[in-house]
Nucleic acid binder design. Structure first.
Length: 1069
RNA sequence: GGGCCCGUAGCUCAGCCUGGUUAGAGCGCACGCCUGAUAAGCGUGAGGUCGGUGGUUCAAAUCCACCCGGGCCCA
């Protein structure tokens, strides 16, 4: 058989393979092959289908695909179901943009139905593009049966999960402090908040809180930059270990000019008044003269009661802690007074403290940003951010002697990105999952995961879990999984958390065909409360679920578990492996973990590989505003998918931020891919010439040392690549393949074997040629298999071309045949090191490689010698007649000893340096004995130390005039004398070189026979005569005619300043 | 403010977990070589004391502490 010529265009080859896959349905076949094989479970993290795929998605998808392909090759069935994340704010924002509306009031004006219709329609805007790109980068995934988070089936499974959480008593209603836009009536996501920070100059106030039952009638001084939260004040927070002082305000003293100090602005303190604040803050806060009349630590203040600032604004409701001093860990003395005003509903710390100590949870501000009617001082109904409001608050405080002073304060404050309103941090109703109740299990389950890199698990995820707060499940939005929670209009302790559509139908009657659970239809469904004698109406709560709950439910919801596919779910849970970006730590990794921990008491995944961002070539984050986003299609068109995939994996570990560097892509293409293609092309060319094929009947001779060496390396490579992939060390595995292909296979095995691939000379040995082909064929096809997970397209093409036509992705991953021989490998290493040194010596001496030399004198560390065949390789590589190993009996060699610190250190401790120095001074006899393996005694200072052979390394140095180079105990010294015979041979070789060039220039095929005519200087003609047979063999000349130029058309060349005339004539037939 | 990662040659990265004394690759640069793969390939050379400081140790790029710079996530 003839091997297929390589498709020259890289992208053309890739497209060709993709077409083959489409026609053959190779992905399906690869799954069917493994139908009865053990499962290797992979979960696809659903991308949001309303954004375009970028280059960073290629990285994530490559990592996913790579392991899946590898596991398939190791005999597993790797089910890979595509998924789409279809709910959530990004989809809503896109819909708002399309509809030209903004904010909740406008959405509700339009109608939730119309709005959600647009959301639903938009979901798959980019789906085609995702699938197209995934196909092109050879990401195999089952797109025919994707899970879609907004499908009825998926939502029903999510409902089931929520109802299970309720059954475990872990679902509750509370509040959540959100950055809230009172105009738009909506909470903002952190991403939105980040877009709207502005520097503002606003009043801040120092407020006097009148203590109850204080002998001095003291006031506690607190500070806030948001005066509108003061009516909601319910407590003062202090740090227990901070020192506070009581200070008495003194009379103002006239200055030198007899004037009293003037204070601008409202508020004051009368002489004799006693104020309490942190010792560290007194200097900067007090504007009056004062004296310190007492010191207390925070703990002593805890429990003291004070009078409400705005009586009646909030009802006590039986709370003991209301309007008292509380201890808190978030208090600092960096600004303010060291005493923090706490308005339970208007700050995150405040709310947490309120929950912990049982403070009332009551709003003083309504949804639109207006004070409630109960707030005294004429504030009721005012918008908290209106111009006059701050004035009204201030007036009330002045009237009631609550204000110490007021000053302007400049800081950065978030504003709504839509309407520029100042955001209010406000408690909103929210449904929570009590994840804190399972914190220990979360930590234990996370600890059981094989994280790559491990610090994600122990650090980022571990820290996050250790500080876990309850999961705020609900969103006050429209396009999402509706919370399946129904509350009674009369008593909201009557509630139903519905776990299936059947259950809902049981309460509310038939749901009809093709039931869709989304808003607003679901909001209409209700029923009479079932509680005895209640008579209330059950209505669904308006919220939808956090979209992370959807994606975290995919392990079971992708199977519509528990309603269907119970066995499929059980077989595919937990996942052996998932892979996503590091930003998913608190996203998908967390939501999967939390849900599975609660429902199934186990981690949903066993191994996780994370990837970091892809930066631009300058190390900057890619962003639209910078305009430095790389279009994946451009890159694919230029380099092809394989190169990109391999580069992304081999360049650096996936969990490090990676630069997108076109020059590195180019290098990857040249080094690994181009070399591999060249090697294949070389193989095809000569296999064709020699009519060899792997299933032919040519009998191969015994493997040479070189064959055994490369096959040993191949086996070792198969082992290490397999180990790397087993342990998710993808980068190391990828790099090893390149080293093998480039350095071992192409640049040594093929180079040193070249003339074995044509059986034309006098010493031709067809059996050996067959052996060389057999070896190269195995190396190429095994390399293709090893490369298949990384670069699936070229690998598949090569494997199909080299083997029997089946896809590489249906083959088994190569196993080592244990042919690695460490002594042979060491010898080859030695030879290659000596070859490098020999070339260096030639360069030094200015003698080119084509000039044969008599000998190289060589030294190998440890006195090793090379087997005959390896010596021959070395001689050929260096173009010398023989390799002479210097022996210590000769005059050429001098020995020295170097301490082996690793062995010496533990033996001698502090004496190590002295012993090492003494070893360095050893000479003659001692060295010789150590080299032969006997210990010697040396004197170090005043003691005698036994030095064993393993304590030292014996180095050999040449004492010679020869051209030499040495490194790391290796040495190569060339005998540069060129006698007449060598010179003749050199000239003959130059002639061969010139003839080959002419052959090429004249477009001859490699196997074409020629008639050769050589004329010119006497030395040239002599060399041509003497080495005619050699020249004829090398150039495929049927005749070499010397000195008889005649009238033929000759090409004139110059060799070492000598003129030569050459004619190459193709022999026809 | 908290957590995590990174900082080694002009550039991209190994090495660090498990400490051992001329710190390795590749790219780029300079010079040279080879070629029956050729709009390829190979070699040699120059170039770093491993972000800084302090500590542990006979010995630190490697372990510890603090600091500086960059990034990400969370507040």
């Amino acid at each position: 058989m003839a091997y297929r010529p390589l498709t020259e265009s890289v992208t053309g080859l890739e497209e060709e393979v993709l077409r083959t896959w489409d026609a053959e349905d190779t992905f399906r076949l690869s799954l069917d092959d493994r139908a009865d094989a053990p499962d290797f479970v992979f979960f696809e993290g659903p991308p949001t289908a309303n954004g375009r795929p970028g280059v960073h998605h290629i990285l994530a998808r490559t990592i996913k695909d790579l392991i899946a392909r590898y596991r398939t090759m190791t005999g597993h069935r790797v089910t890979r179901i595509a998924g789409w994340d279809t709910h959530g704010l990004p989809v809503e924002l896109e819909a708002e943009k399309e509809l030209g509306i903004s904010g909740k009031p406008e959405i509700e004006e339009l109608g939730i139905r119309e709005f959600n219709d647009v959301c639903r329609k938009n979901i798959f805007t980019y789906q085609d593009e995702w699938e197209k790109m995934s196909r092109r980068i050879a990401y195999w995934l089952d797109y025919e049966h994707p899970y879609v988070t907004c499908s009825s089936r998926f939502v029903e499974s999510a409902w089931w999960a929520i109802s299970e959480i309720e059954k475990r008593g872990l679902l509750y209603r509370g509040h959540r402090i959100v950055p809230y836009c009172p105009r738009c009536g909506t909470g903002l996501s952190s991403h939105e908040v980040a877009q709207g920070y502005r520097d503002v100059n606003e009043p801040s106030v120092f407020v006097k809180f009148h203590l109850v039952d204080d002998p001095d009638g003291a006031r506690i001084l607190s500070w806030t930059t948001t005066p509108w939260t003061l009516p909601g004040n319910l407590a003062l927070a202090v740090a227990e270990d901070v020192e506070y002082v009581r200070v008495r305000v003194l009379e103002d003293q006239p200055d030198e000019a007899g004037k009293l100090p003037r204070r601008d602005g409202p508020g004051c303190a009368a002489p004799g008044e006693v104020l309490i604040l942190a010792k560290a803050r007194v200097e900067s806060v007090m504007t009056h003269p004062y004296e310190v009349v007492g010191e207390v630590v925070g703990a002593e203040l805890v429990g003291r009661a004070y009078e409400p600032l705005f009586p009646g604004a909030v009802e006590r409701g039986g709370s003991e802690a209301a309007w008292t001093v509380l201890a808190a860990d978030f208090v600092t003395t960096e600004d303010g007074t060291g005493i923090v005003h706490t308005a339970v509903m208007y700050g995150e710390d405040d709310y947490r403290l309120g929950v912990a100590t049982g403070l009332p949870q009551q709003h003083t501000v309504d949804e639109a940003g207006h004070f409630m009617p109960e707030v005294p001082g004429g504030l009721g109904g005012l918008h908290v951010k209106d111009k006059g409001t701050e004035r009204a608050i201030r007036d009330w405080m002045v009237e009631n002697d609550l204000l110490y002073r007021r000053e302007m304060y400049e800081h950065s404050y978030p504003h709504c990105w839509r309407c520029a309103s100042a955001l209010l941090y406000m408690a909103r109703n929210s449904w929570y999952i009590r994840t804190t109740a399972v914190k220990d299990q979360l930590l234990a389950n996370s600890a059981s995961v094989d994280w790559h890199p491990p610090e994600i698990g122990s650090g980022r995820m571990g820290e996050w879990l250790a500080n876990n707060v309850d999961w705020a499940l609900s969103r006050e939005r429209y396009w999402g999984t509706p919370l399946p929670i129904w509350l009674c209009s009369e008593d909201d302790s009557h509630r139903r958390v519905v776990g299936s559509y059947d259950e809902l139908a049981g309460f509310a009657g038939d749901l009809g065909e093709d039931f869709d659970p989304h808003r607003p239809e679901i909001d209409e469904i209700g029923w009479e409360c079932h509680e005895e004698g209640c008579g209330g109406h059950m209505r669904r709560v308006p919220e939808v679920a956090d979209a992370w709950f959807d994606s975290g439910s995919m392990p079971f919801a992708q199977w519509h578990y528990p309603f269907e596919n119970v066995d499929e779910f059980e077989r595919h849970f937990p996942a052996h492996y998932i892979a996503e970006g590091v930003d998913q730590t608190r996203g998908w990794f967390y939501s999967l973990l939390a849900i599975s921990t609660i429902l199934f008491e186990t981690s949903p995944y066993r191994a996780v590989v994370v990837n970091d961002l892809i930066l631009d070539a300058h190390g900057r984050k890619m962003s639209k505003s910078r305009g430095n986003i790389v279009d994946p299609w451009d890159a694919i068109g230029e380099y092809g998918a394989d190169v990109i995939r391999y580069y992304l994996i081999a360049g650096s570990n996936p969990w490090l931020p990676k630069r997108w560097d076109p020059s590195a892509l180019h290098e990857t293409e040249r080094k690994l891919f181009s070399t591999l293609r060249h090697t294949y092309r070389f193989f095809v060319l000569y296999a064709g010439e020699e009519d060899w094929s792997h299933d032919g009947d040519r009998v191969a001779g015994e493997p040479t040392d070189l064959d055994r060496w490369i096959l040993g390396r191949l086996d070792r490579l198969a082992t290490t690549v397999g180990e790397g992939l087993e342990s998710y060390d993808l980068t190391r595995a990828a790099r090893q393949i390149q080293t093998f292909v480039l350095d071992d296979l192409s640049n040594w095995y093929v180079r040193r074997s070249r003339d074995r691939f044509w059986a034309t000379g006098d010493d031709a040995d067809p059996a050996d040629t067959a052996r060389a082909f057999t070896t190269l064929h195995e190396c190429l096809s095994t390399s293709a298999l090893l490369l298949a997970p990384f670069a699936p397209l070229l690998a598949d093409w090569l494997y199909r071309a080299l083997a029997d036509g089946d896809s590489a992705h249906r083959a088994d991953f190569p196993a080592s045949a244990d042919r690695f021989e460490s002594e042979l490998d060491q010898a080859m290493e030695d030879a290659r090191e000596l070859a490098a040194l020999g070339r260096a010596a030639r360069e030094d001496a200015g003698v080119r490689t084509r000039q044969p030399l008599a000998a190289v004198h060589a030294v190998v560390p440890g006195g090793r010698r090379l087997p005959e065949s390896i010596s021959a390789l070395l001689a050929e590589e260096l173009n010398v007649k023989q390799v002479v190993f210097l022996s210590d009996t000769g005059d050429l060699l001098r020995l020295s000893a170097k301490a082996n610190f690793g062995v010496l250190g533990p033996k001698h401790g502090a004496q190590t340096p002295a012993v090492a120095r003494a070893i360095g001074e050893l000479e003659g006899d001692g060295l010789a004995r150590l080299r032969e393996g006997t210990g010697v005694e040396i004197t170090v200072g005043d003691r005698v130390v036994e030095v064993a052979p393993e304590d030292v390394e014996i180095l050999e140095h040449a004492q010679t005039e020869l051209a030499m180079a040495s490194s790391q105990g290796y040495l190569a010294a060339l005998d540069t004398d060129v006698d007449e015979a060598l010179r003749g041979e050199g000239l003959a070789r130059e002639l061969v070189n010139r003839v080959q060039r002419i052959r090429r220039e004249e477009g001859l095929e490699v196997a074409d026979r020629i008639r050769l005519i050589v004329a010119g200087a006497e030395d040239i003609e002599n060399a041509a005569r003497e080495h005619g047979a050699y020249i004829a063999g090398e150039t495929l000349a049927v005749s070499v005619d010397v000195g008889n130029a005649g009238s033929a058309d000759l090409t004139s060349v110059e060799i070492d300043d000598l003129d030569a005339m050459i004619r190459v004539e193709r022999v026809s037939g």
